[in-house]
Deep mutational scan, measured.
Amino acid sequence: RPFRVCDHKRTIRKGLTAATRQELLAKALETLLLNGVLTLVLEEDGTAVDSEDFFQLLEDDTCLMVLQSGQSWS
């Protein structure tokens, strides 16, 4: 499924495809050149996407933000 993913400053944006939350996090880690533990949130309001069940309910092309440890949505 297609998703739009950005870093916490919204300066890097990438289109990625993934079937699972874990797959998307792995691709974001590599594509956005990030490291460490990542958190996935909705870009629009910062809602945490912390379960596979919730991830599977997201629509195609949902905009997501990837946060590294110590970063927060704004």
Rank of each mutant, 00 (worst) to 15 (best):
D53K: 11
L42I: 12
L24Q: 02
G46H: 03
E43Q: 00
G70P: 05
D60G: 10
A28P: 01
F55E: 01
V41Q: 02
T47K: 10
Q68R: 05
T62C: 05
L40I: 12
F55I: 00
L29K: 11
A48E: 11
K9M: 15
R1G: 01
L16T: 06
A48H: 07
S72H: 12
G36S: 08
W73F: 08
E30N: 13
T31R: 10
F54C: 14
G15Q: 14
S69Y: 11
Q71D: 07
D53E: 11
D53I: 06
Q71R: 02
S72I: 14
N35V: 07
R10C: 04
L57D: 11
F54P: 05
D50C: 08
L25V: 08
T47V: 07
L33V: 12
Q68Y: 02
L34I: 08
G70E: 10
A26M: 14
S72G: 08
G70A: 05
D7N: 10
S72F: 10
V37C: 15
D60C: 05
T47D: 03
L32E: 04
A18T: 03
E44H: 15
I12D: 12
E59R: 12
A48S: 13
L64V: 09
I12T: 13
L64S: 06
Q22H: 10
A19N: 09
L34D: 00
G15C: 13
Q22N: 13
K27N: 11
R4K: 04
T31Y: 12
K9V: 05
L34E: 06
D7C: 02
S72V: 12
G15P: 14
G36Q: 05
D53P: 07
E59K: 13
L24F: 11
L33T: 13
H8L: 05
F54L: 14
L25M: 14
E23K: 02
G46A: 03
L34Y: 09
L67C: 08
L32T: 09
K9D: 07
P2T: 15
R21M: 15
D45Q: 05
K14Y: 08
L16E: 01
L57C: 14
Q56Y: 07
F55A: 08
V41R: 04
C6P: 06
K9T: 11
D45Y: 03
F55C: 03
R1V: 02
L67S: 01
T20P: 01
G15Y: 15
N35F: 08
M65K: 01
L29V: 15
V5P: 03
S51M: 03
G70M: 06
L32R: 00
L42F: 06
E52N: 06
L57N: 13
R4D: 07
N35S: 12
S69W: 08
V5Q: 01
D60N: 13
T47L: 06
R13K: 15
V37W: 08
T62S: 09
L25K: 10
V41P: 00
G15A: 14
D61E: 14
R4E: 05
Q71K: 02
F54K: 15
F3L: 09
D45T: 11
S51W: 01
E59H: 07
E43N: 05
S74T: 14
I12L: 10
L33Q: 14
A28W: 06
F54A: 14
G46Y: 03
A28I: 13
E44F: 05
L29Y: 11
C63A: 09
L57T: 11
D45F: 04
Q71A: 04
A48V: 12
V49E: 08
T17L: 12
E52T: 01
L42T: 12
R10Y: 02
K9E: 09
D45L: 05
G70K: 07
I12K: 10
T11K: 13
F54M: 15
T47S: 11
E52V: 04
L16N: 04
N35G: 07
L57R: 13
W73V: 00
A19I: 11
S72W: 06
L25S: 02
I12A: 04
C6L: 06
E52P: 02
S69T: 11
D45G: 02
C6Y: 05
E43V: 03
N35P: 12
S74M: 10
D45W: 04
T47A: 09
K9C: 10
C63R: 10
V41W: 05
E43H: 01
G46W: 04
L24S: 03
G70T: 07
L42S: 05
G36N: 11
D7W: 01
T31N: 10
Q68P: 05
L34V: 09
T47R: 11
L34W: 10
W73P: 04
M65F: 01
S69Q: 14
T17H: 06
E52Q: 07
A48G: 10
A48T: 11
D45S: 10
L29S: 15
E44D: 07
W73K: 03
L33Y: 09
A28M: 07
Q56W: 04
K14M: 15
T17K: 08
P2Y: 15
E59Q: 11
A19Q: 10
S51Q: 07
L58V: 09
L33N: 14
I12S: 10
L16G: 00
T39R: 13
L33I: 13
S72P: 08
Q71W: 00
V66S: 01
F54W: 11
T11N: 11
M65N: 02
V49C: 07
L67H: 03
E30Q: 12
G36K: 08
L16P: 02
A19M: 15
C6K: 03
E59G: 12
D61L: 01
E44M: 10
R13S: 13
M65Y: 01
C6R: 03
D60F: 05
K27E: 09
A28D: 03
L57E: 13
E43C: 01
L64F: 13
G15D: 12
T20H: 07
D50P: 09
D7Y: 01
L16R: 00
Q22D: 09
T11Y: 09
T20M: 03
R4T: 09
D45E: 07
V49N: 04
G46V: 01
K14F: 08
A48I: 13
L38T: 09
L29M: 15
E59S: 12
L33H: 15
Q22I: 10
A18K: 03
D60H: 13
L33E: 15
L42D: 02
A48C: 12
V49T: 01
C6F: 06
M65Q: 00
G46P: 02
L16D: 12
R1W: 01
T20Y: 02
R13V: 14
T31C: 14
L58E: 04
Q68I: 04
E52Y: 00
L24K: 02
T39G: 08
Q71T: 06
Q71P: 00
S72N: 07
L33W: 14
L40H: 00
Q56G: 11
V49R: 00
T20D: 13
R4V: 09
W73Y: 07
L57A: 14
A28K: 00
L24V: 12
L25G: 03
S74P: 05
L67W: 00
V66K: 02
Q68K: 11
L57S: 14
F55H: 02
A28F: 01
V49Q: 00
C63P: 14
V41K: 04
Q22S: 14
D50K: 07
N35T: 11
D45I: 03
P2M: 15
I12N: 09
S51P: 05
V49W: 00
D50T: 08
F54S: 13
D61N: 15
H8Q: 09
Q68D: 06
V49K: 00
L32Q: 04
R21F: 07
D45C: 08
Q56K: 11
S69R: 13
F3M: 14
L16K: 01
S74L: 06
I12V: 14
E44Y: 07
V5L: 12
G15R: 14
D45P: 06
T62M: 07
C63S: 12
S72T: 12
L24D: 00
G70R: 06
L38I: 05
Q71L: 02
N35Y: 07
G36F: 03
E44N: 09
L24W: 00
F55Y: 03
L33F: 11
C6M: 13
T62H: 03
V37L: 08
E44A: 15
R1F: 03
G36L: 00
A26F: 11
E59D: 12
F54H: 14
T17G: 05
R10L: 03
K9A: 08
Q22K: 09
F55G: 00
E23M: 06
L29N: 15
G46S: 01
C63Q: 10
T11L: 13
H8Y: 10
V5Y: 03
L16V: 12
Q71M: 06
F3S: 05
K14S: 11
F55N: 00
P2I: 15
D7V: 01
D7L: 04
T31V: 11
V37G: 12
M65H: 01
E43I: 00
T17F: 10
F55V: 03
K9F: 06
L32K: 07
R10E: 00
E23N: 04
T47Y: 05
T20V: 00
F3Y: 12
P2K: 15
L67D: 02
V37H: 15
D50F: 02
F55M: 05
V41F: 03
D50Y: 05
R10S: 03
R4A: 12
